[in-house]
């Protein structure tokens, strides 16, 4: 039995590997026909995006993990409704962002607040891998700063938070953000400006250093 399972896993691995090179439009078509390897290839292509956005929005691995799983199940479930393959990136973002917002709302209702001792959020690992931080002394110095940045972002309304994280951190264009959040370009711009001004005010004392 175990050899059969191992064999099956090898077959799965080879086929998933072959699908990795296909264009998204082919993968979507195959997945719409129920092809599991196409689903997996789509997952491999978008998993990091979904995880990163969720992690930015929610601030920790556990919540990001939960949202990522739910996001992909919804993406796969509704894939047949996707008419244009070009829209998939915006759509993946959209599902992720909406889920994060729902997730936060559910948490807020039970008086969820950023936890003081949230290991994951401010772990040394996280600090050490941050792009700016190169050495351990800096890690400790920046811990306070990171706490403030996180608090400042958390204090933003969800819409503004989504806009600024997608734009400034993920580098998503304003046009695509408008698609993702299903709002006008003007709204994106306004939200982005508000968010930037608020964050700048809150982080002012770190900006002149």
């Amino acid at each position: 039995m175990s050899t059969q399972v191992a064999f099956k896993m090898q077959v799965a691995k080879d086929s998933a590997g072959q699908y990795a090179g296909l264009p998204e439009s082919d993968l979507i078509t195959l997945a719409q026909q129920g092809d599991e390897f196409a689903f997996e290839a789509l997952y491999r292509r978008f998993a990091r995006t979904v995880y990163t956005v969720a992690h930015h929005m929610l601030g920790n691995h556990h919540d990001a993990d939960e949202v990522m799983q739910e996001a992909f199940i919804r993406i796969f479930k509704n894939l047949s409704r996707l008419r244009s393959p070009q829209a998939i990136t915006a759509w993946v973002y959209q599902i992720t962002v909406n889920l994060c917002m729902d997730f936060r709302k559910a948490r807020t209702r039970s008086r969820w607040e950023p936890l003081e001792g949230d290991e994951d959020r401010h772990s040394h690992f996280e600090l050490a891998t941050a792009r700016w931080v190169r050495n351990p002394e800096q890690v400790l110095e920046n811990k306070e700063l990171l706490t403030h940045i996180t608090a400042a972002i958390d204090s933003l309304p969800e819409q503004q938070k989504a806009v600024i994280l997608l734009h400034e951190v993920e580098g998503v264009s304003k046009k695509m953000i408008a698609e993702i959040l299903d709002c006008s370009l003007v709204t994106v711009r306004t939200n982005l400006h508000h968010a930037r001004k608020k964050l700048r005010r809150k982080l002012l004392r770190y900006l002149n250093a």
């Binding site: 995880y51 990163t52 992690h55 930015h56 601030g59 691995h61 990001a64 772990s123 690992f125 996280e126 891998t129 941050a130 792009r131 700016w132 931080v133 920046n142 700063l145 990171l146 940045i149 996180t150 972002i153 600024i164 994280l165 400034e168 951190v169 930037r196 964050l199 700048r200 982080l203 002012l204 770190y206 900006l207």
Partner: peptide, 16 residues
Amino acid sequence: ESYRKTAMLLQLRAVP
């Protein structure tokens, strides 16, 4: 400059 720096500060929250 302060807006640019604010944007850069956000990058500190790099996702592991």
